[in-house]
Design a protein around this nucleic acid. Structure first.
Lengths: 106, 106
DNA sequence: ATTTAGTACTTGACAAAACCAAGTACTAGA
DNA sequence: TCTAGTACTTGGTTTTGTCAAGTACTAAAT
């Protein structure tokens, strides 16, 4: 998969996923991987960055299957940024796809 | 516009544009700008890179309206890479958009 | 009891691609 | 002669993803 296409989109995927339920990092890695090929070393830094920018709040919970889990919860400003990024992505991908259609390439 | 979404896509746009006609850099800057906000310092390095990778051949032609123009011509391997990148983009954007649809966000 | 596999998170060095700003240089028209 | 428009180049910076390695916990197999 083209690495470059992912830039910025991974953030959006995570924001959308966290809108429904709080999740912990490892869980997000698994979910995001179903959509785009990605590894832990990519997701965790995004979670840290977006937490620093206060789009997420975190709390921990113990697990009976392994080490303690750190959960991420979308804040109000996180919801706003999600809306913004989603809109940007839609406009962007639509304008590219429209260009491709007009260019009549296949 | 979100800078990150452009990564990799600008190459694709240029490849598609050059499939139809040879063009010079400044012309490509103007055309690409109609689709995504972009500036010269972004386009010229892409042209140089793709020329080094022999996806383009170049030749120059004088102009009566300014300095000499460097034209870019898509090679056979350039066409192949265009096909490949186009396919990758379609698959990528479709999988993201499908996820968005399923997530029922708006 | 110890090893192994699966779960869970962190970090550091690196690479790719876009940005901005500035510089060079040519032509045409005021 | 100056200015605006055309045309290309380069250098430093930022952002974001990759890979690899490391830490550490639990449960099941040896």
């Amino acid at each position: 998969m083209n690495t470059q296409y992912k830039k910025g989109v991974l953030e959006l995927l995570i924001l959308i996923m966290l809108e429904k339920n709080d999740m912990y990092g490892y869980e997000l890695v698994a979910l995001v991987s179903k959509i785009v090929n990605v590894n832990e070393g990519t997701i965790y830094p995004i979670l840290k960055r977006l937490t620093n920018e206060s789009y997420f709040e975190t709390y921990t919970k113990e697990s009976s299957e392994g080490p303690i889990r750190k959960y991420y919860h979308l804040t109000a400003s996180g919801k706003l940024i999600k809306d913004k990024k989603l809109k940007e992505w839609k406009e962007f991908s639509e304008s590219i796809n429209e260009f491709i259609r007009k260019s009549d390439v296949n």
